[in-house]
């Protein structure tokens, strides 16, 4: 069943802030096999002009995926989570995420379209710092695979 396009623009309440910790950045960078020192060494990050450890460019997914559960489990959208796969991902960074950031997310439905029996919904998550400045915007295209109709 196709998702109603009237849900485009639906915006969810801001999430509780995600506190970015040094050890989480180190753990995430290590899981990606990273060796760049600014992910691990505070002195190195500061020498490069940053206030603290720098998070890898895809770190925002930890925050945005958690926040986008509001959409995935919205009973009115009625997505079948067991049929949802991650189709595309985009990040637009105003600045890197740093250790010590407290990031609040506002999630909205950016687009909805249907093709070949699949529903495609783009979930937009804006990550803002405590002061309200936009740090990063994540766009996740979720594909809800259609159920084959029996004849």
């Amino acid at each position: 069943m196709a998702i109603n396009p009237e849900f485009i623009g639906r915006t969810y309440p801001p999430t509780q802030a995600y506190s970015v910790g040094r050890e989480k950045i180190r753990e995430f960078a290590a899981a990606l096999g990273e060796s760049a020192r600014c992910f691990f060494d505070v002195d190195e990050a500061r020498a490069m002009g940053y206030p603290d450890l720098v998070a890898p460019p895809t770190f925002a997914i930890l925050v945005s995926m958690q926040a986008s559960k509001q959409v995935i489990f919205d009973p009115e959208l009625a997505l079948d989570y067991t049929r949802v796969v991650h189709g595309e991902q985009k990040f637009v960074h105003s600045r890197p995420i740093f250790a010590g950031d407290d990031l609040t997310s506002v999630v909205s439905v950016d687009s909805i379209r249907s093709a070949a029996g699949n529903d495609m919904i783009t979930v937009k998550t804006e990550l803002r710092s405590t002061g309200g400045d936009l740090v990063s915007t994540a766009y996740s295209l979720l594909v809800s695979r259609g159920v084959e109709e029996s004849p």
């Binding site: 990606l32 600014c38 895809t58 991650h86 189709g87 595309e88 991902q89 985009k90 960074h93």
Partner: peptide, 30 residues
């Protein structure tokens, strides 16, 4: 994980660039 692949392959860019904090946009289709 698609995000493991996406998070890893960008090292070709950031290792060359010399500063992973200078990534402004990054997108991929799985």
């Amino acid at each position: 994980h698609g995000m493991l692949t996406m998070g890893t392959v960008i090292r070709v860019v950031t290792d060359w660039l010399g500063d992973p904090g200078k990534v402004l946009e990054y997108s991929a289709r799985f």
